[in-house]
Amino acid sequence: MDLQAIAFYLLAAITVASGLLVITARNPVHSVLFLILAFFTAAGLFVMLGAEFLAMLLVVVYVGAVAVLFLFVVMMLDVDFSQLREGFSRYLPIGMVVGGVLAIEMILVATTVANRGAASLNAAPANPDAALPNAEAIGRVLYTDYVYFFQAAGLVLLVAMIGAIVLTLRHRPGVRRQNIGNQVARTPESGMEIVQIKSGEGLSE
């Protein structure tokens, strides 16, 4: 067994195991940490495929931003997870049935893939020029062939932003905000009061 195969099986096994632990861990913080581990090992698998750019994207975006945000949300929200888990055993049988059917179907599909070779029959290579670096190859199609999808995805993000503002922004009265104009206009006269105090008496409000 060569080194690459060993690395693949190691990374794949860790990915699957941590994926399982994400949904079985009792502590939600542990779940998120296993999610991060799953992302990391998946990034490793991408590197092995020669897709360095995607690997870095996975680490930067999913680990760096999304998973850490999850962690904050899980730690800050006061959600009673033990209560959420109460329904687990009740729904376990039907869940097992649905999951079992899905698993059998997936296996059937996977064997079809193995037998027929699926897309390898007619798919174009993802990276036509091997000399081209990953990021450049993606950039060349992203802003030409896929410019429509790229811009439309931008609109989807705009909706998400507007939605977050519409649903959460509240203008509370009486909130003290920093006003730089006022701060700059402040003079020693307006900011200071000089009081003469008789010795031994102190200052009362």
Partner: peptide, 17 residues
């Protein structure tokens, strides 16, 4: 399929809000 999905998401996300 990509424009199908993005179109549906754009419409649905606005409707959820």
């Amino acid at each position: 399929l990509i424009s199908l999905y993005i179109g549906i998401e754009l419409q649905s996300l606005a409707l959820y809000v």
